[in-house]
Design a protein around this nucleic acid. Structure first.
Lengths: 266, 266
DNA sequence: CGTTCCCTTGAGTAGTTTCAATACTTGTGG
DNA sequence: CCACAAGTATTGAAACTACTCAAGGGAACG
C-alpha cells in the first residue's frame, strides 16, 4: 500500500511462477491451482502430469462420453470449457461446467458409468487419463488419491451452490451468478482477465444452465445490461464493477475452496 | 413366475440376509446397501463397522456441524434423516438429504470445512467416525477408500439430479420427485414400506428443498392429492400407484446407482 | 385450555413461458 | 461480391406459475 511499486512486483513474480508451472507441467499445471496445488510436492505434480496418456483438441462441440456408457478414462480439461449435460424429452439441461484444470468426469472412475453426458464447448483441449493409471494411484499413493478425491468434492460443492442458486434466485441473478463463478474459477487457475470474460457460451447455453428459456434469458441479460451490471455480447461478458456483480448475484466464493480456506479465498 | 411360491421364498431369504447383516453390523449395516455392499468382503464390512467411535441420538432437530467450522469427524446416518442446509438472508435452503447408510459429511474429511450446515430432522441416530480413522483407511486400504469415494460421488450424482429437477420441473413435480427419490433410497437400504412413506418432514421442509414458498408447496401438494398421485399428511406420504408417481415426477432411478448398475437398478 | 407449530385459503402482484414474428451474424457457394 | 442458410439474438402479447400479504383453521403439547 505504502510503496506503490510493490504490488505490481509481487504480481509479476506470481505470474512468472505461474508461467514456469505451465511450462513444467503443460497439461496439468492448472490442476488444483489456486487450491491445494501450492501444497503439492514436485514429485506429486510430476506424477499427476504423467497420468495423462494423450491429448485431443476439439474445435467443434463434441460429446466425449455419453450417459450410461462405460467410462475407461478420465478427461482433464486443459483449455476451453466442458459441460455436464443431460438430454431429456427433447430438451437439454446443463448441470455442471468445468474449466481448465478440472477433471470433467473423475466420477467415472469410481462410478464406472455416468448419469450425464460430457460435452465440450467451443475450442477445447483435453487430456485423457486411463483409469488403470488412477487405479495405480489409488493403490500406491494415498496423498494424490486424497487430492483427486478433494477435486471431486469441490465439484460437488459447486453442484450444491447451483442448487442453492436455483432455489433462491431469479433469472437475472442466476446468470449473474454464473458469470461471477466462472470469472472466479478462471482467476483461480490464472485465466482471469480484467473487465471482460471471453467464453464460447451462447444465450441458449446460459438458459440451459439457469433452468430458463432462451427467450427469458435474453430478457434477463437485458436487465443486467440496463442495470450496468454486465453486458453479454456473443460470448463476451463485459463487467464494469465486479463487486456490484457479485453483490447482485449473492455470490460468496467460499464454496469454491480457493486458497486460504473457505473463509477468505482471494 | 411359474411357481408362485418361489418369489416370496426368495424375498424371505433376502430379508433374512438383511436382518443378519443388521445384527452383525448394527451401525454400518446399511452403508452402500443396495449398491456396492454385496461386493464387500466380511473384513471390509468389519473395518467399516469399526470406524464408528461413538453414536448419538437426537430427538430434536440438531445442527451437527456448521458451515465453515473445522470438521474433525464424519457423521454416519443410522436412523432418521439428515439435511444439508444453507441459511442465507434469513431464509433456509435445503441442498441435500441423507438417509440411513449415508455419510452426512464425508466431504468434510478432504475439504476440512463445509460449505453448508449438517442438520438432523426428527428422531435421528448417528455414528461418528473420527477423521484420524479415515486417514488410516486412506493410507492402508485402497479398496475401502474407493468405497468411501464412491459414496461421496453418489451424493454428487444426487446433487446433479436435484439441479436437473429444479431446472426442469414445476413445483408439484418437484415434490413428487422428492417423494419418489426418498422412497427409492429407503428401499435400497431396506427401509421401504408399501404405499406409505413415514417421514419427519414438514411442508416447510419440502418447500425449502424445492425452492418454493411453504404456501405454494401447500398448493402443489393439493395438486398431487387431487390428481391421486400422492397425499401428504403431517409427514406421512400415501402413494396409491408408485409407477404413476414416478412418471409424473420424471423419476429415472439410474442416477442413484442401485444394484445392477445405472441401467436397470431395482 | 391456551400456546405453538403446522397447515389452508383468497386475492393481487411479480416472474416466467409460450407462441409468433423479426433481425442480426457468420460462413458458404455461386 | 451477393445470396442464402443456419445459428443466434430480440421484441410483443397472452397465458401460466409462483410469490407476497393477510387471515384463519387444526392438531399436538404442556
Amino acid at each position: 500500500m505504502a510503496r506503490s511499486a510493490e504490488p505490481s512486483l509481487v504480481l509479476t513474480f506470481l505470474s512468472r511462477m505461474g508461467l514456469a508451472e505451465a511450462e513444467t507441467y503443460p497439461l496439468t499445471g492448472r490442476f488444483l491451482k489456486g487450491r491445494l496445488r501450492r501444497a503439492m510436492s514436485d514429485s506429486e505434480k510430476a506424477l499427476v502430469e504423467s497420468l495423462v496418456e494423450s491429448t485431443q483438441r476439439y474445435k467443434e462441440p463434441a460429446r466425449l462420453l455419453a450417459r450410461g456408457e462405460l467410462a475407461e478414462q478420465a478427461t482433464l480439461v486443459i483449455e476451453g470449457l466442458v459441460t455436464r449435460t443431460i438430454y431429456q424429452e427433447g430438451r437439454r439441461f446443463i448441470v455442471g461446467l468445468q474449466v481448465p484444470g478440472d477433471f470433467a468426469d473423475l466420477n467415472g472412475f469410481a462410478l464406472k458409468r455416468l448419469d450425464h453426458d460430457i460435452v465440450t464447448l467451443g475450442n477445447t483441449l483435453v487430456g485423457f487419463v486411463p483409469h488403470a493409471r488412477l487405479e495405480q494411484v489409488l493403490a500406491d499413493n494415498p496423498e494424490v488419491t486424497r487430492l483427486l478425491w478433494f477435486a471431486s468434492l469441490v465439484d460437488a460443492a459447486i453442484h450444491r451452490q447451483w442448487i442453492l442458486k436455483l432455489e433462491q434466485l431469479t433469472a437475472p441473478r442466476r446468470v449473474a451468478h454464473i458469470f461471477a463463478e466462472l470469472w472466479y474459477r478462471l482467476d483461480l487457475v490464472g485465466l482471469g482477465r480484467r473487465e471482460v470474460l471471453r467464453t464460447p457460451l451462447t444465450q441458449v447455453d446460459l438458459a440451459d444452465m439457469c433452468g430458463t428459456t432462451a427467450i427469458h434469458m435474453n430478457r434477463a441479460l437485458g436487465v443486467l445490461k440496463r442495470e450496468g451490471i454486465a453486458e453479454f455480447r456473443r460470448g463476451a461478458v463485459y463487467i464494469p464493477d465486479r463487486r456490484r456483480l457479485e453483490q447482485f448475484a449473492h455470490f460468496h466464493p467460499e464454496y469454491l475452496y480457493g486458497e486460504g480456506g473457505p473463509r477468505n479465498a482471494a
